[in-house]
Design a protein around this nucleic acid. Structure first.
Lengths: 202, 202
DNA sequence: ACATTTTTGTATTGATCACTACAAAAAGAG
DNA sequence: CTCTTTTTGTAGTGATCAATACAAAAATGT
């Protein structure tokens, strides 16, 4: 039982990757169907047949981004033995991911759809859920540090997680504004220099 | 020699302020002329007669934002006697400005036009110039700290300024994602706790 | 009064948006 | 071969975009 009908002329996963690059660069709202048609090199009806709608294509592109570009950040974080090293690895991996030579700068999940308040709640909620997941991951690692005995129990893990997440998200803006990888890694350095003061405080 | 012709039925500065609120909330690209017509309560031809175009209206709105919402941040920064207090005041003022009860959250200059790479270079360059001005202001204050003797000469003022600017810009994303004023002030607290470690380092 | 100047509201412009109808094309199934 | 299924490319759909044409309205100037 093979496939009936006329075969596809394009590779669905390649087309999706090209759509991801466009959405990553321009965001959801500033990306038009002609933009996608040009980048994916397939006509509009093929896009709709394969992905359903611009909105569903974006959601699939975000999932692909999450796996191919974002996953490494959290894997590198998870492989570190201490909370401090985990935060450092997360920020360094982010700085590198946001400044890859031939790729769009900054994080697609942070920059992809900031202004869809009124309409497109599905898009907005999807990205917000991803960002909330980042928060949860950082927060959990800090709490693990407490149960490990690395960190004092009195520390406000949620506030500290928010601090480092704020730096990560700020780096997306910096990267989009043209900051070099070295500049972002310097930001990470200062963020980690701060660690001892932060975890010894109230 | 008074004004000839039929008098205006609207107050130009009030209309501009209402346009500012819409652009601040939705960004340049996600704001349509019908959105502006609804908010400013004047018809399309009146908008064009008074402001020239959507693009020029946005630029005027950014200038108004810079004066009415942004200026306080830099004034509070300038009034502090030390670099440390200046940075702290700048971040605290930002946290407050980004979470005012009846106003859009986050910074219009940071969030207003992130995705206008291809077209609208005028819009993009205008906001980038404003962001560069923020960088220069922070950087200059740190260098003043060096000439004052507050900070060691070996410090990399540009990198430290980038660090604190990154935190400020990250707070815009956090605010837009719903972070409370208290949460942002906690971020500021950690950013300032880091100060001693940062200025004592290389 | 009458001409001049400027704004107003209505109605519309061509361009572009996301999306699709449709028929020819290209495969397997019988 | 013919029938069925699916994709293809062309050519559009109505909706909405930013921006205007135009004439009535409302003020001043002489």
């Amino acid at each position: 039982m093979t496939q009936r009908g006329r075969p596809r002329k394009f590779d669905r996963s390649i087309a999706l990757r090209q759509a991801m690059d466009v959405f990553w660069t321009q965001g959801f709202d500033c990306t038009s169907m002609p933009d996608l048609i040009g980048a994916m090199k397939i006509n509009s009806p093929s896009i709709y047949a394969a992905f359903g709608s611009k909105e569903k294509l974006f959601i699939e592109a975000v999932e692909l981004y999450s796996v191919t570009e974002g996953e490494e950040i959290w894997v590198r974080m998870a492989n570190e033995p201490t909370a401090r090293l985990a935060i450092e690895a997360m920020l360094q991996a982010s700085a590198e991911a946001y400044t890859r030579p031939a790729k769009p700068r900054g994080c697609m999940i942070v920059l992809g759809a900031l202004h869809t308040e009124g309409g497109n709640t599905a898009i907005r909620r999807g990205l917000q859920a991803h960002r909330a997941q980042c928060m949860t991951t950082i927060h959990s690692r800090l709490e693990l540090g407490i149960s490990d005995g690395e960190l004092a129990k009195r520390l406000d893990c949620r506030a500290i997680a928010t601090f480092y997440l704020t730096i990560q998200q700020g780096m997306s803006i910096q990267a989009r504004d043209g900051a070099s990888r070295e500049a972002l890694l310097a930001v990470v350095k200062y963020a980690i220099v701060a660690w001892d003061s932060i975890i010894s405080g109230a």
